[in-house]
Every structure is written in structure tokens, then in C-alpha cells.
Design a protein around this nucleic acid. Sequence first.
DNA 1: CAGTATCCGGCGAGATACTG
DNA 2: CAGTATCTCGCCGGATACTG
Lengths: 131, 131
Amino acid sequence: MEPSAFREHHPSMCRAREILDRVGDKWSLQVIALLGERTKRFTELKREIDGISQRMLTVTLRGLERDGIVTRTVYPVMPPRVDYSLTPMGATLMDAASTLVLWAETHLDEIDAARADYDARAAEIETLKTS
Amino acid sequence: MEPSAFREHHPSMCRAREILDRVGDKWSLQVIALLGERTKRFTELKREIDGISQRMLTVTLRGLERDGIVTRTVYPVMPPRVDYSLTPMGATLMDAASTLVLWAETHLDEIDAARADYDARAAEIETLKTS
DNA sequence: CAGTATCCGGCGAGATACTG
DNA sequence: CAGTATCTCGCCGGATACTG
């Protein structure tokens, strides 16, 4: 894995931020992960993503569709039925993002420890001030 | 690369979101990328990151420091001097994130095309409505 | 079922002013 | 130089109500 893209951060980095805006928002990653399993319907996604509102699921799916990451298939039946699935590009994005998710899982404990340590030091400094 | 972490999205996915909150915010990635080059000072970072405010650079660096991703070294001199650099864990994060950055650069054109296509279709539907 | 429309509160982040 | 302290505004996203 060559992090060459990082070395010259201008101007590719600012474009890369657009992608992180997409995948880094509150819900996109979870939607992508679930569609990575298989094609799903709107209500199925809503049921499986804890805490998401109808509105935000719609907004998230529209954004992903616009970027060519998911496809939206409408069946003109009653009651309406809409299927969502990953595009080929969406599947490659899922693989790329999984690297980060893996990193996160690997370092969660280390990060928690670092935070606890930092907060403890900050609290100590605070008590020194008041004394 | 095994995206197994994605397959069972609960509850590891919600924890993973915390990491994406860190790396996915507006400035963290650029800071990490720049510190990947070498240790740098506050003003140096501010100069190299276009558009960042003093406040947001401070906030970003504090967050990264709290999570054990960057170290902050204060030299008690006048005028003050503070060095920032990546921790070993920060360096591994940079490698993991570079996968996503690479993906972004690879697919930027494809995404732009998808957006243009989507927007064109949306505009067309809009004109059909009014006619 | 799969949405859209509307209202609204909180907070992320910019601008500005001040300091050890 | 390397910050902190406020004030402020925009907009993200939750809640709710309505619809083909």
C-alpha cells in the first residue's frame, strides 16, 4: 500500500475530502455495509439501521445514488417496491472503506486508553489550578 | 483484504463511526497527511492548510492529540514554540486512510460523471412536469 | 410501502478580539 | 508564536404530518 497520494496533498487532497464527506457522514457507511450483504428494500434498511429517520435514509440513499454508488430500482406495483443495491463502484468503495474500519477495530482500545489518559491529565491540571 | 468487519455491522460498526468522525471531519485528514511528511509547528500547519482558522486548527490538533494520533511538544521559550508530529499509531492510521484517498482519486472522474448524469436526468424530469 | 413537506433546535465552525 | 474567549450564523438532522 503506497500512501503516495498523501505526500503531495495539493490539490488532490481537497477533492479526496469530497469522498470523505460522502462516506464520512452519519449514515452512508452503514448503508453501504448493509447493501454489501445483498440487495435490500427501503424498509429493510430502515429496520436494520438503528436510530435512522425516514428522512435521513432517503437523503443518504439519494446522495449515494447520485454519486453512482448505489442503484435504485422502482417496481411500479401496489404497494410500491424499491430495491437498493451497490453498483460495482460501490463495491470497490466498500472494500476501500473496510481498511479503515479494520484499523478502527484494531485500535479502539488504544484510542480509548489514550482518551482516558488525556482526560485524566486535563482533570489533574484543573485541580492544580483551583488549589 | 477481507471486508469481514463489514459483514457483521453490529455493534462494531457504531464504534467504527467514532473513528470516521475523527478522520472524516473537515480538517483531520489534511493535518495527518502533513504531519506524515515530518514534524511541524502550529503556524507551519496553518500556512499549509488552505482556509483553516486558528481556532479549528487548535480544535483539530487537540482532538487528534487526545486520541493518541499526534503528539504535542511544548518548548518553554520566548516566543513560544510547539511541535506536532504523528505517533506510531497515527502513522498506521495514515496508511489505512490512504487506501480511501487512493480510491477517491481513482474514482473522482467516475463520480463526477455519475453526478452530472443524475443532475441532468433530474432537470429533465423537472421540465417534463412544468410542460 | 416508500416516500415528500415542513418546522425547528443544537452545534459545528467562521470572524473577531484578546493574551502568556 | 501559539494559542484562548466570545459571539454569531448556517445548516444538519430529528420529529411530525401528509401522500401516490
